[in-house]
Deep mutational scan, measured.
Amino acid sequence: SLEELLKLARHALRHGEEIHVLDRVITDEHEIKRLIEELERLI
């Protein structure tokens, strides 16, 4: 769900981890922040 993805993204950002989204691995902090902003808009 989007909520789950948002939780994962926030966790990854906090802990400096990578996040796997739709067969992509996002490691860049700015990309993760952008993902979080997009998800928050959708929810």
Rank of each mutant, 00 (worst) to 15 (best):
residue 1 S to L: 12
residue 1 S to I: 10
residue 1 S to C: 09
residue 1 S to K: 12
residue 1 S to E: 12
residue 1 S to H: 14
residue 1 S to R: 13
residue 1 S to G: 12
residue 2 L to I: 10
residue 2 L to R: 04
residue 2 L to D: 03
residue 2 L to G: 01
residue 3 E to K: 11
residue 3 E to Y: 12
residue 3 E to S: 09
residue 3 E to V: 12
residue 3 E to H: 12
residue 3 E to R: 11
residue 4 E to H: 10
residue 4 E to L: 11
residue 4 E to K: 10
residue 4 E to A: 12
residue 4 E to C: 05
residue 4 E to I: 09
residue 4 E to V: 09
residue 5 L to M: 09
residue 5 L to H: 02
residue 5 L to D: 01
residue 5 L to W: 08
residue 5 L to S: 02
residue 5 L to R: 04
residue 5 L to E: 02
residue 6 L to V: 05
residue 6 L to Q: 01
residue 6 L to G: 00
residue 6 L to C: 03
residue 6 L to M: 04
residue 7 K to V: 10
residue 7 K to A: 15
residue 7 K to C: 05
residue 7 K to Y: 10
residue 7 K to D: 13
residue 7 K to M: 12
residue 7 K to W: 11
residue 7 K to H: 11
residue 8 L to G: 05
residue 8 L to I: 11
residue 8 L to P: 00
residue 8 L to M: 11
residue 8 L to F: 06
residue 8 L to E: 10
residue 8 L to C: 05
residue 8 L to Q: 13
residue 8 L to W: 06
residue 9 A to W: 14
residue 9 A to C: 02
residue 9 A to N: 00
residue 9 A to K: 00
residue 9 A to L: 15
residue 9 A to T: 03
residue 9 A to G: 02
residue 9 A to R: 00
residue 9 A to Q: 01
residue 10 R to D: 06
residue 10 R to A: 07
residue 10 R to T: 10
residue 11 H to C: 05
residue 11 H to R: 07
residue 11 H to D: 11
residue 11 H to L: 07
residue 11 H to F: 05
residue 11 H to V: 05
residue 12 A to Q: 02
residue 12 A to D: 00
residue 12 A to F: 02
residue 12 A to V: 03
residue 12 A to N: 02
residue 13 L to Y: 07
residue 13 L to T: 01
residue 13 L to C: 02
residue 13 L to H: 04
residue 14 R to D: 14
residue 14 R to H: 13
residue 14 R to E: 15
residue 15 H to A: 09
residue 15 H to D: 06
residue 15 H to T: 13
residue 15 H to L: 08
residue 16 G to Q: 08
residue 16 G to A: 06
residue 16 G to K: 10
residue 16 G to V: 03
residue 16 G to W: 04
residue 16 G to T: 03
residue 16 G to E: 05
residue 16 G to S: 06
residue 17 E to W: 12
residue 17 E to G: 15
residue 17 E to K: 15
residue 17 E to M: 14
residue 17 E to L: 15
residue 18 E to P: 15
residue 18 E to N: 11
residue 18 E to T: 14
residue 18 E to F: 11
residue 18 E to L: 07
residue 18 E to Y: 11
residue 18 E to H: 14
residue 19 I to V: 13
residue 19 I to S: 01
residue 19 I to G: 01
residue 19 I to W: 06
residue 20 H to T: 13
residue 20 H to S: 09
residue 20 H to Y: 09
residue 20 H to Q: 12
residue 20 H to P: 04
residue 21 V to H: 08
residue 21 V to G: 04
residue 21 V to C: 07
residue 21 V to Y: 15
residue 22 L to N: 15
residue 22 L to C: 05
residue 22 L to M: 13
residue 22 L to G: 15
residue 22 L to S: 11
residue 22 L to T: 07
residue 22 L to Q: 11
residue 22 L to H: 13
residue 23 D to G: 11
residue 23 D to Q: 04
residue 23 D to F: 03
residue 23 D to H: 05
residue 23 D to S: 03
residue 24 R to P: 02
residue 24 R to D: 05
residue 24 R to Q: 09
residue 24 R to V: 09
residue 24 R to M: 11
residue 25 V to M: 04
residue 25 V to I: 12
residue 25 V to Y: 08
residue 25 V to L: 09
residue 25 V to S: 04
residue 25 V to R: 05
residue 26 I to P: 02
residue 26 I to C: 03
residue 26 I to L: 12
residue 26 I to E: 02
residue 26 I to T: 03
residue 26 I to R: 01
residue 26 I to F: 15
residue 26 I to Q: 01
residue 26 I to K: 01
residue 27 T to P: 02
residue 27 T to V: 11
residue 27 T to A: 11
residue 27 T to C: 04
residue 27 T to K: 14
residue 27 T to Y: 08
residue 27 T to H: 09
residue 27 T to L: 06
residue 28 D to V: 06
residue 28 D to M: 09
residue 28 D to I: 06
residue 28 D to R: 07
residue 28 D to K: 10
residue 28 D to W: 06
residue 28 D to P: 03
residue 28 D to E: 12
residue 29 E to P: 15
residue 29 E to Q: 14
residue 29 E to D: 07
residue 29 E to C: 07
residue 29 E to I: 14
residue 29 E to W: 12
residue 30 H to R: 13
residue 30 H to F: 12
residue 30 H to K: 13
residue 30 H to D: 14
residue 30 H to Q: 14
residue 30 H to V: 12
residue 30 H to C: 06
residue 31 E to V: 08
residue 31 E to K: 05
residue 31 E to H: 06
residue 31 E to C: 05
residue 31 E to A: 09
residue 31 E to S: 08
residue 31 E to T: 08
residue 32 I to M: 07
residue 32 I to H: 01
residue 32 I to P: 00
residue 32 I to S: 00
residue 32 I to F: 04
residue 32 I to W: 02
residue 32 I to Q: 03
residue 33 K to S: 09
residue 33 K to W: 08
residue 33 K to N: 07
residue 33 K to E: 11
residue 33 K to P: 01
residue 33 K to H: 08
residue 33 K to G: 07
residue 33 K to A: 11
residue 33 K to Q: 12
residue 34 R to M: 14
residue 34 R to Y: 08
residue 34 R to P: 01
residue 34 R to S: 11
residue 34 R to T: 10
residue 34 R to K: 14
residue 35 L to T: 02
residue 35 L to E: 01
residue 35 L to V: 06
residue 35 L to R: 02
residue 35 L to D: 00
residue 36 I to Q: 00
residue 36 I to C: 03
residue 36 I to R: 01
residue 36 I to M: 03
residue 36 I to F: 01
residue 36 I to G: 00
residue 36 I to E: 00
residue 36 I to A: 02
residue 36 I to H: 00
residue 37 E to L: 12
residue 37 E to A: 13
residue 37 E to G: 08
residue 37 E to N: 09
residue 37 E to M: 12
residue 37 E to S: 10
residue 38 E to P: 00
residue 38 E to R: 12
residue 38 E to W: 15
residue 38 E to V: 13
residue 38 E to K: 11
residue 38 E to T: 13
residue 38 E to M: 14
residue 39 L to A: 01
residue 39 L to C: 02
residue 39 L to E: 00
residue 39 L to M: 04
residue 39 L to V: 05
residue 39 L to R: 00
residue 39 L to F: 04
residue 40 E to H: 06
residue 40 E to L: 10
residue 40 E to V: 10
residue 40 E to M: 09
residue 40 E to F: 05
residue 40 E to C: 04
residue 41 R to A: 10
residue 41 R to G: 06
residue 41 R to K: 11
residue 41 R to M: 09
residue 42 L to C: 04
residue 42 L to A: 08
residue 42 L to M: 11
residue 42 L to N: 04
residue 42 L to H: 05
residue 42 L to W: 08
residue 42 L to Y: 07
residue 43 I to D: 02
residue 43 I to P: 01
residue 43 I to Y: 05
residue 43 I to E: 03
